[in-house]
């Protein structure tokens, strides 16, 4: 069946200045402008955000959850990156 809906876009909303953009869903649109306007109408009807990103879904490159183990493995054996790795004397209270 032909697709009459246009390509898919991912929508990210920023709640307040300085905060991260959070993924909130996706939508169809034929171009950037329409994607942005549709995102506004669909995902921010109640002042959910002050800024929006729309990104073509096809442009997103994602790691696969199945490969999670091997993909993130390099950090697993580096416990020395965590502060709790370093024993502190009891008398030192605030560090």
């Amino acid at each position: 069946m032909s697709d009459s809906q246009g390509p898919l876009w991912e929508v990210f909303v920023q709640k307040k200045a300085g905060q991260p953009f959070v993924h909130c869903g996706n939508l169809h649109a034929y171009d950037k402008e329409m994607a942005l306007q549709n995102a506004r109408d669909l995902y921010t009807r109640r002042g959910e955000g002050m800024s929006l990103w729309v990104v073509p879904t096809s442009a997103i490159v994602a790691s696969s959850p199945e490969d999670q183990g091997s993909f993130f493995e390099p950090s697993n054996d580096k416990v020395f990156r965590h502060p709790t790795f370093y024993p502190m004397p009891d008398v030192i209270k605030h560090m």
Binding site: M1, Q5, L8, G25, L27
Partner: peptide, 11 residues
């Protein structure tokens, strides 16, 4: 869009 993520189209 949630349904589309399962591999069907809006149309």
């Amino acid at each position: 869009t949630a349904a589309e993520s399962l591999g069907t189209s809006r149309d």
